[in-house]
Nucleic acid binder design. Structure first.
Length: 393
DNA sequence: AATACCTACAACCGCCTTTCG
DNA sequence: TCGAAAGGCGGTTGTAGGTAT
């Protein structure tokens, strides 16, 4: 039905930043009388403000129990984790961070954490490695194949190739971030094999043009060697590790491009994450999203633009109808899971103090170090690393 | 030194849900 | 039971301060 703004009837009501005097009036009034009816409060307190504005000012800024100052690392991790499971439910997230308001958390997410995840190659919406970095992969592959004949190309083609090289470099950066954060907290530990493989592929391509790999080694792959493959994935080394995985598939060096992509798409079924750090003991990194009725990894499409598994439950009418349905500027279905793997989990059971040790030194979420609510609720057992779980992703 | 641009965050907007008479 | 008021929520905007050119 909708309602008019609470102060629409009063055009003279003041808006904008609060002055110290206004703050004082509001604090003093609430201190004496409590807030009571927010709509009547401004008049009673001598404020020329909308009641709603007073409420927001109080709850977001003046309330005495508000904790100000920088967010701690634990708070950051908790926010990221809760966002991965709850989406943009800022108020729900705020209930788990004492003294923090939903507005503050929302702002902190938008200004810090979101960028932080992006810089690590993590999609802040899906909490999975970014796919946009791989969007141009087919073109990059084509451009890479042109590498040998580049000297014969007209200027425009060389310019295009330069652009492709730049994009490849970006992919490499994404790879580095993905690998460097593969041991990050649970949300960052999401590492579907497809993305890793394509990232490595991009990294190999990038090595051709960028020549910046040096002696750096990642996850058992000596990237300094990749440069010698000269931008042609026909020469890629096998992306498997003897100590870690079966060797029933031919090395990538012997595969055609199509076969390679097929392998990328199918390999995720369980034999993909073959670097020592990613497959030790048969452990699997899995994601909350993957753990919840989304397409199984083996069903993933080969498209580099493949969308992540849907995060929105089927009962979300707004999403089903794909219309605002009066939702106005409400949350985007794409951005906010209408339900999550943590549905049914009582947030009151979550205690940030109970998280100690969960974020281990390696930042890998180890089930046995985590509070029980994390590893036992609903589908949570599918969501995080479990020593006993070697088949599901 | 001046200007443009960027960043952070307080505050607002509009819708939804809950409460209450 | 119904409808209006009140409260709550998430997205967006405005602005001040900082930084780069």
């Amino acid at each position: 039905m909708g309602r008019s703004p609470c102060c629409e009837q009063d055009a003279d009501v003041k808006k904008g930043p609060w002055t110290p005097e206004e703050d004082k009036l509001l604090v003093e009034y609430i201190g004496k009388h409590g807030h009571g009816s927010w709509r009547r409060l401004p008049k009673l307190a001598g404020l020329n403000r909308c009641g709603k504005s007073c409420r927001l000012r109080w709850t977001n800024y003046l309330r005495p129990d508000i904790k100000r100052g920088d967010f701690t690392d634990d708070e950051e991790r908790l926010i990221i984790h809760l966002h991965a499971t709850l989406g943009n439910k800022w108020s729900s997230i705020a209930t788990k961070l004492k003294g923090r308001t939903d507005n503050e958390i929302k702002n902190y997410w938008n200004t810090h954490l979101r960028k932080k995840l992006l810089s690590q190659g993590i999609d802040p919406v899906t909490h999975r490695p970014r796919t946009d970095l791989l969007a141009g992969l087919p073109n990059l592959l084509a451009a890479a194949n042109l590498g040998g004949a580049a000297h014969q190309l007209p200027l425009d083609f060389n310019a295009i190739k330069l652009q492709a090289d730049a994009a490849k470099f970006q992919i490499l950066q994404g790879l580095l971030r993905v690998l460097s954060t593969a041991t990050a907290p649970p949300t960052a530990a999401v590492l579907p094999g497809t993305d890793l493989m394509t990232s490595i592929l991009g990294a190999t391509l990038a090595a051709n043009s960028a020549g910046i790999l040096g002696q750096q080694q990642l996850a058992g792959v000596d990237l300094s060697r990749l440069g010698q493959y000269n931008g042609n994935y026909d020469n890629l080394p096998p992306l498997t590790n003897d100590s870690c995985t079966q060797q029933t598939q031919p090395p990538m060096s012997s595969m055609s491009p199509d076969s390679l992509l097929n392998r990328i798409s199918s390999g995720i079924s369980g034999d993909m994450l073959s670097s020592p750090e990613l497959c030790h003991g048969g452990d699997r990194l899995s994601s909350p999203e993957l753990g919840q009725g989304g397409p199984s990894a083996s069903n993933m499409t080969t498209s580099p633009m493949a969308p992540p598994p849907p995060m929105v439950a089927a009962d979300d009418h707004q999403c089903n109808t794909n219309t605002p349905s009066g939702g106005g500027d409400g949350m985007s279905c794409e951005q906010t899971p209408a339900s999550s793997t943590f549905d049914g989990l009582n947030l009151d059971d979550i205690d940030i103090n109970d998280m100690e040790g969960c974020w281990a030194m390696t930042d890998i979420l180890l089930a046995e170090q985590c509070p029980s609510w994390l590893i036992s609720s609903n589908n949570a057992s599918e969501m995080y690393i479990s020593k006993n779980n070697t088949s599901e992703m």
